[in-house]
């Protein structure tokens, strides 16, 4: 044991000097002072025109970003600014992600698709219209990693949702909390529960009566997508809202 300690001490001392010598060598060239680059904040905007189409018609998506190194639209890399015609078969939310040194910004635009009117039978409009209004006004909200507090844009979305729900006293709403698949199965159930509850509390605060709102956590059991990408993980960290008749 004594030998071992002595050997260790010797090794330590010699390494100490080695470090001193090499350390000195490195210090000879002083680093050139450099201005830290100014980090500009990233912006992202996405819009659809028109926002509502009949099935078969097309809508134009237009996006603008600033100071982003990487811009993706629904997971596909696109130019910093641009536009594209889309013709979705059903109501679709497009998702823009801009990543730059100043952070990550996201923007959503929903194209609502309606059934073209049929000649002979007019569909009973009430429930269909309800679903359309619900889809337009009560949209999914997204969360940061391992967090369940509401982002500012989620609070705006919930204010819109609360107005629509209040205007339709026959609506009941189920709030489904979801997580990305990186956390552990059981812990994610509590995380999803708290995400659903955060939305419920905000809706109650905005005047919706609690007995019209149900919450459930799906943890990571019902993912919207399954790719191991930041974009997919973000799409799964969400509250999804379902209209119950």
């Amino acid at each position: 044991m004594n030998h071992r300690t002595r050997n260790l001490t010797l090794i330590l001392i010699s390494l100490f000097f080695l470090v001193l010598i090499t350390g000195c060598g490195k210090k000879k060239e002083p680093p050139r002072p450099q201005e830290p680059p100014e980090i500009k904040s990233v912006t992202a905007a996405l819009s659809a025109s028109p926002a509502s189409i009949e099935r078969g018609q097309s809508s134009t998506l237009t996006w603008n970003t600033e100071n982003a190194d990487q811009v993706t639209l629904d997971g596909r890399a696109v130019d910093a600014n641009g536009s594209r015609n889309v013709s979705p078969a059903r109501t679709t939310t497009f998702h823009l992600v801009a990543i730059g040194k100043g952070g990550t910004r996201q923007a959503d635009a929903t194209v609502t698709v309606t059934e073209p009117p049929t000649a002979d039978i007019t569909p009973p409009a009430i429930t269909l219209t309800d679903e359309q209004i619900f889809a337009q006004n009560v949209t999914d909200i997204y969360f940061d990693y391992d967090r369940y507090d509401l982002r500012p844009q989620s609070q705006q979305a919930l204010a819109t949702a609360a107005r629509a729900i209040s205007q339709h006293p026959n609506w009941r709403v189920r709030i489904e909390g979801n997580c990305d698949d990186r956390g552990s199965t059981e812990y994610n159930l509590t995380l999803g529960e708290n995400r659903a509850r955060a939305a419920k509390d905000a809706l109650i605060q905005a005047g919706v009566s609690a007995d019209r709102l149900q919450t459930i956590s799906y943890g990571k059991e019902k993912p919207a997508c399954t790719e191991a990408t930041e974009d997919c993980w973000q799409r799964n960290r969400r509250d999804h809202f379902v209209l119950i008749h």
């Binding site: 330590l12 390494l15 100490f16 470090v19 001193l20 350390g23 000195c24 210090k27």
Partner: peptide, 17 residues
């Protein structure tokens, strides 16, 4: 310089431990 050397030997001790 001394500080860096001290830091390095601390790291070494941790690795040894």
């Amino acid at each position: 310089m001394l500080k860096a050397a001290w830091k390095n030997s601390t790291l070494l001790l941790i690795l040894l431990a």
